[in-house]
Design a protein around this nucleic acid. Structure first.
Length: 905
RNA sequence: GGGCGAUUGGCUCAGCGGUUAGAGCACCUGCCUUACAAGCAGGGGGUCGGAGGUUCGAAUCCUUCAUCGCCCACCA
């Protein structure tokens, strides 16, 4: 084998932008320049803070993260360019259940060990070891997308400082009486053996059965015998979970239901256990469903729990924590719930107490985490009273200290807060913040900021402490403190004072309840040293769109339809991935995405790269622009367009309208700069024209800054090259440069109109060339007829440009020029363009084309004529609108005449 | 059962009361023009889901229907 020099890649040879090398080079450049650490030399400036929604430590970057990270980075980079001291703080969430599950699985796969076998301490050590090894993976992935986070301030929800904050918050709430422990019906995950919150369950439609069970009536309300007066001897209830009948403590019917009214107040016998239970009247029963009679199982159904409470029915719990039936299930004790269901049905059937059985589709509640069915179960849990915390969180939106974008999400937020329920914060897990409550021998609990060693005296009772609560806190009990706990709270740190509250939170709609609302509550509850409007943890909550697959389905692991953002980065580049996402993502609108769509961004980045390559290689030194010397039409035009673009882009960025900003910059870059300006100026540039070079230098520098938030790598790379070639005093690193201020630029309406007219003429010329098989570079004599003197003058100002770009032998412009015989003709915008072909014209194609234009114009003219002859329009529409229609009609008439003239000749 | 969103060229989406409804992709034609074929030039194609209404004027506002999607809700 012979060794050879690595050849230039095919891509480089062909002028293709190759992102991989540039990206790592630029990251190194930023790193060398000090990285994106907040404060430092910018300590004197106004701050702009973004807290990353901490992804799970177990996480792997998916499209949602990529989109969210891109949005935050766009804002961070834009604000940095605008001169702010930007802190974008990164970090990860310990994600209790998810992480514990990952490590448990690994432990079992590798060493056939369960966590119980290992014991609490050793198991936690395993998780920490896992976290140290893999915990930063997702942040590293984000960095590859270009995220300009302050990596020196990276936080983790179980860092000692954050853990301290969690404990402080718990104790404060405890002291205010907002934390209580109680036996409540919770959503029990039998697989993970923990409670999960309402927000962590989902309803999945499943095929099931609706069984009718017959409970014998023992005696009527007044003590009458069953069946007397024609009353039913049995009450028939319908259920999808027959095994829960073992926990029934009543039967409910609607008070107005004629079928059962006679049984209200009666006592019935609960079969199998021979318990006597009452029949109660409850408005909440839907007579039309099932049999109209509902078994009431307060221990195992949330609706029944409340119904039972209304009628003071006792609660019987028949389930153990692992999902098997307990001693209250009598003969069925010890059976797993599925087996118990069969056994109960069989037993009832044997006693002739089973009624109709129907196949139905119904919603089954499933645990988000384990995907196993949720069993509502009474258990002792810790709760936070939410009502008092919700009040200021509602006020935050009402007063405008918190804004949602799109605004409609505010209602979702408010609706939830209006009906907020107490938050079950205890989890029967090991991985998480252990509940800081200690008990004495009588079981009297106390919350404490400091650990209470076993044997030490209980601060209230004085009796020795015997144990700490076994449970840990819900993960959200740490992440709701994220906006300030990451800055050092509860200590009064300089960071906390400087960077709280934050300005921008970007997240997904799914966690408005779980996270956003709770952070606002926490901000108002725990940051009371600040005035109320400054307690709100973020000024804007930006809700991202959902990235769907090409068929419009959610991307999910189980469907396998997800796209790995890093594969896009590898294939198309980080800039291309980011830019494509922004171009395809309109605020508030879900996005259908397929990998190929990244070509959009890749092509754009490539275009930008090549345009700059051309300028930098052909222009020589780029002098500082003196706007006074930029007198050529194309120069005045592009500078005017630049002025307009800076203004519009600034506006769009400021309003977080990223899609608008990207579209606008795309068009300016591709159409205005590349298609027109660079083409117009090529000969000048190659001839060493300094003004053209200076204009290009200015346009490029400003454009790179405008695009930098979207495509940081390529813009930085070009900036570095531009800086080396330019006499302008450009900052050393684009990432910390200044946002274009438009100095020396102004809108030039006349230049824009002149150029638009020239573009129309040129398009006609090119069209005629193609129609008549005239090669692009063969010089042609062109005559243009224009509607008025102003247009004629305007076209004359564009003469040089037209001759150059259109390869014209001559250009004649007048209102009514002499028309050369045998010319090819085109009419558009009231401008008639004639190409002198000395009779070599394809008459048929010509006529067909002109006829089509004429039809269109005639149709429009007719519709305006009708409009103008309508009295109600002319009298009621605003005068300027009517005048505009009149003017438009005149133009159309003139155009009609021109075309008719051409068709007649 | 409520709430929200969507329905615009073949596809994916902009436009959200006022001239001729736009873009990218795809398509047709001609071009390897020394920045870019991941490109250049030119072109064709939609009356804006259906029906009603408001208005001088509606893709844009209102009502209603249809279809699709998301969220919330204790129909056992």
């Amino acid at each position: 084998m012979s060794t050879t020099q690595p050849p230039a890649t095919a891509g480089e040879m062909a002028g293709r932008y190759e992102p991989a090398a540039v990206e790592s080079e630029m990251r190194a450049l930023w790193e060398a320049a000090g990285g994106f650490t907040a404060g430092g030399t910018r300590a004197g400036r106004p701050t702009f803070t973004i807290m990353i929604p901490p992804p799970n430590v177990t996480g792997v970057l998916h499209m949602g993260h990529a989109l969210n990270g891109t949005m935050q980075d766009i804002v961070a980079r834009h604000r940095r360019l605008c001169g702010f001291d930007v802190l974008w703080l990164p970090g990860t969430d310990h994600a209790g259940i998810a992480t514990q599950a990952v490590v448990e699985k690994k432990l079992y796969a590798e060493r056939k060990l369960t966590r119980q076998q290992l014991g609490r301490e050793a198991f936690l050590a395993e998780i920490w070891a896992w976290k140290e090894k893999h915990g930063n993976y997702i942040l590293e992935q984000l960095a590859r997308l270009g995220a300009s986070c302050d990596w020196s301030r990276t936080k983790f929800t179980m860092d000692p400082a954050l853990s301290r904050a969690v404990r402080e918050a718990f104790v404060r709430l405890w002291e205010k009486g907002l934390i209580y422990r109680g036996a409540r019906l919770v959503n029990w995950d039998c697989l993970l053996q923990t409670a999960v919150s309402d927000d962590e369950i989902e309803y999945v439609p499943r095929k099931g059965r609706l069984w009718q069970l017959r409970y014998p009536v023992l005696r009527l309300a007044g003590g009458g015998a069953p069946g007397s007066g024609g009353t039913p001897t049995h009450i028939v209830v319908a259920t999808t979970r027959p095994e829960t009948m073992l926990g029934d403590t009543g039967v409910a019917v609607h008070p107005d239901d004629a079928r059962w009214r006679a049984l209200i107040g009666a006592t019935v016998r609960l079969p199998l256990l021979d318990r006597e239970i009452p029949v109660v009247a409850d408005e909440g029963v839907e007579p039309k469903f099932g049999t109209g009679a509902v078994k009431v199982t307060p221990g195992h159904d949330p609706a029944d729990y409340e119904r039972g409470a209304r009628h003071r029915l006792p609660i019987v719990n028949i389930l153990a924590k692992d999902g098997t039936l307990n001693e209250n299930a009598g003969p069925f004790a010890g059976l797993p719930r599925e087996k118990a269901r069969e056994a109960v049905v069989k037993a009832l059937d044997e006693q002739g107490l089973l009624g109709k059985v129907e196949e139905i589709e119904h919603n089954v509640s499933m645990s988000d985490r384990s995907k196993s069915p949720i069993e509502p179960l009474i258990s002792e849990q810790w709760f936070v009273k939410m009502q008092p915390l919700a009040v200021p969180a509602i006020e935050a939106v009402r007063s405008g200290s918190l804004r949602f974008k799109p605004e409609r999400w505010a209602r979702v937020y408010l609706d939830w807060l209006d009906h907020v329920r107490d938050w079950c914060i205890s989890r029967q897990l090991w991985w998480g913040h252990r509940i800081p409550v200690w008990y004495d021998e009588d079981g009297v609990g106390v919350a404490s900021r400091e650990d209470l060693p076993l044997g030490s005296p209980h601060p209230k009772t004085g009796k020795p402490i015997v144990r700490q609560d076994e449970d840990v806190l819900d993960t959200w009990a740490s992440s709701w403190l994220w906006p300030f706990a990451t800055l050092g709270w509860p200590d009064d740190t300089p960071d906390l004072r400087r960077y709280y509250p934050t300005q921008f939170l970007s997240t997904a709609s799914e966690i408005i309840y779980l996270w956003v609302a709770r952070m606002v509550m926490a901000g108002h509850e725990f940051m009371q040293q600040l005035p109320p409007e400054r307690r709100t943890p973020f000024a804007t909550c930006f809700i991202n769109t959902t990235v769907l697959d090409a068929q419009g389905r959610r991307m999910s692991k189980s469907l396998g339809n997800g796209i790995d953002p890093l594969e896009l980065v590898a294939q198309y580049g980080a800039d291309a991935t980011r830019f494509s996402l922004v171009m395809l993502t309109k605020e508030g609108q879900d996005t259908r995405f397929a990998a190929e769509k990244t070509e959009l961004g890749r092509n754009f980045v490539n275009k930008l790269w090549n345009a700059s390559r051309f300028v930098l290689s052909r222009a020589g030194r780029l002098p500082v622009l003196d706007p006074a010397r930029a007198t050529a039409l194309e120069d005045r035009w592009i500078l005017s367009r630049l002025a307009a673009t800076i203004e519009a882009a600034g506006e769009a960025y400021g309003h977080y309208d990223f899609n608008d900003a990207a579209n606008l910059l795309y068009r300016f870059t591709w159409n205005d700069v590349c298609d027109w300006y660079v083409e117009a100026v090529k000969p000048r540039l190659l001839a060493g024209d300094e003004v053209a070079a200076a204009v290009l230098g200015r346009v490029m520098a400003d454009l790179l800054a405008l695009l930098h938030p979207f495509t940081p790598f390529v813009t930085e790379a070009v900036w570095q090259r531009l800086r080396a070639a330019s006499d302008a005093p450009l900052e050393g690193v684009l990432a910390w440069a200044r946002w274009p201020d438009g100095a020396g630029l102004r809108r030039d309406e006349r230049a824009e109109a002149d150029l638009a007219r020239a573009q129309a003429v040129l398009t006609s010329v090119r069209k005629l060339r193609q129609q008549n098989d005239v090669p692009d570079r063969k010089p042609v004599r062109v005559t243009v007829a224009l509607p008025d003197d102003a247009a004629v003058a305007g076209l004359q100002r564009a003469q040089d440009l037209l001759v150059r770009l259109g390869a014209l032998a001559s250009l004649t412009a007048a209102r009514n020029p002499t028309r050369p015989a045998g010319a090819a003709a085109d009419v558009s915008e009231g401008i008639e363009v004639l190409l002198d072909l000395e009779g070599l014209v394809d008459r048929a194609a010509q006529k067909a084309d002109l006829q089509r234009t004429l039809d269109k114009v005639t149709k429009q003219a007719d519709s305006i004529t009708a409009k103008l002859s309508d009295e109600s329009f002319t009298s009621r529409a605003p005068a300027p609108i009517v005048a505009r229609e009149r003017a438009r009609l005149e133009e159309l008439r003139a155009e009609q005449q021109r075309i008719e003239g051409l068709l007649a000749s």
